[in-house]
Simulated assay, not measured.
Amino acid sequence: MSLPRICSASSRLRLIAPARRPAIAISAQRRCYASKRKAEKEVKDGKGKHTHVVLTDTLVPGSQQKLAGEEYHRTEEKMKGLVERFRKDVAGMEMRASGRVTPEVLTPVRVTVPGHKGGDGLAHRLEELATVGVREGTTLLVTVFDEHTLKFVETAILDAKIQGVMPQRLDTRTLKIPMPKATVEARNNMVTAAQRQAEEVRQLVRKQHTASIKKGNYKKHAPELDEFQSLTNQYLAEIDKTVSDIKKSAGGK
C-alpha cells in the first residue's frame, strides 16, 4: 500500500518556480534581440550614435561661408590673379626706374614664335627661349637658344615698351641692351605707366564682377550681390594701394 504524498506550501513553490524561470529568460532574450535589431536599423538609417565621424578641421565657419558658393571662389581667384600680375609688373617698373640692372627687367616680355611648340600665336616667356645675363652691371645680354627665334625675341622686347629698353644685335644669337641710369624723368614715367596699367586692371576686375553677377542670375537685392561687391571693392583697394606705394617710392606724396 502506497503512502499519500504530502507536499508543503514551500515545496509547491519550489516545484512551481523552476517552471516559470524559462519564461522570464525567454522574455528578456526577446527584448535583447529587439534592442539589437533596433540598433542595427538606426545604424543602417544613419541615426546611430556612432555612424560617422566629423573632422572639425575641415569645416568652414559659418561667418566665412559664401552664399554665392563656387562662383564666388572662382571670381576671387581670377581677381587675385589680375592684381598679383599687376603688382609684379609694378615691381619691375620700380626696379628699372631705380637704375638696378637685373634680368627681371625683361619679365614682362612675351614672345610669339610662329610654329614653335604647337602652333602659331603661342606666347612664351623670354626665359623659355633665351638666357638673360648682366655685363658690367650696366648692360643686359639676351642669348637665344635657336638662331631663328632672335628676330621674334627682338620684336617682343620692343613691343613690351619697357622704359629705356632698346635692344641691339651683337651677332646671330645675341642682343645687347644698355640700361639707362636712374633719373627723375624715369621715375615720373614709371608712375605714369603704373597709373595707366592700374586703370586697365581696374576695368578687368569690374568686368569680372559683372560677368559673375550675370552668370549667377541673382535677383535684385540678393545677398550674393553684396558678397561680389565687397570682393570687388577689396581688390580695387589693393590696386589703389599699389599705385600709392609706387608714388611714394618715386618721391611723390
Rank of each mutant, 00 (worst) to 15 (best):
K219V: 10
K44I: 04
R96G: 12
E199M: 04
E104Q: 05
R85K: 14
V90G: 13
R96I: 01
V243P: 09
V111L: 09
E136V: 00
G118Q: 02
A211T: 09
V132P: 06
R12T: 01
A130K: 02
N188R: 11
V144G: 10
I16M: 14
T210K: 10
I246N: 05
K80S: 14
M190I: 03
Q234W: 01
E136N: 13
T149K: 01
T51Y: 07
R110I: 04
E104K: 03
T131H: 08
S35A: 13
G252R: 07
L106D: 04
K181G: 15
L129W: 05
G251Q: 06
R202L: 06
L55M: 05
G216S: 12
L106I: 03
Q203K: 15
K219W: 00
A130R: 04
V54R: 10
I16E: 10
L231C: 12
E71I: 07
V101G: 07
R187N: 02
Q163V: 11
T242H: 00
A34T: 05
R196I: 05
A250T: 03
Q29K: 06
V134Q: 03
D146H: 09
F228C: 13
T183W: 08
L158C: 11
E71K: 12
G251P: 03
T58D: 09
K78L: 14
D45F: 03
T172P: 00
T174R: 14
G216L: 15
V43R: 05
T242Y: 02
V43A: 14
V90M: 09
T242A: 15
K248I: 04
S8C: 01
K78N: 13
R206E: 11
G164W: 04
H209R: 15
H209D: 07
L129G: 04
R173Y: 06
S98T: 09
A19S: 14
K248H: 07
L106Q: 05
L150F: 06
V201Y: 09
K219G: 15
G121F: 04
A123G: 12
L15T: 11
G118F: 02
R202T: 14
R125L: 07
P108W: 05
G119L: 10
R173C: 00
D240H: 07
V153W: 06
K41V: 14
V43Q: 09
L3N: 15
K49L: 12
R196A: 11
S27Q: 08
G81W: 00
T183V: 11
V105Y: 00
T107M: 08
K253M: 12
E200P: 00
V90R: 10
Y235F: 15
E147P: 00
V243K: 13
L204F: 10
A186Q: 10
E104G: 08
T210Y: 06
V109Y: 04
T107P: 01
H116P: 01
V144D: 06
G164V: 09
P22Q: 11
H52G: 09
V43H: 07
T131V: 03
L129D: 07
T155G: 01
F145Q: 11
E71M: 13
R14W: 05
K151N: 11
I246W: 01
V90C: 12
A123K: 13
V205R: 11
V144K: 07
A28N: 07
T112D: 02
R74M: 11
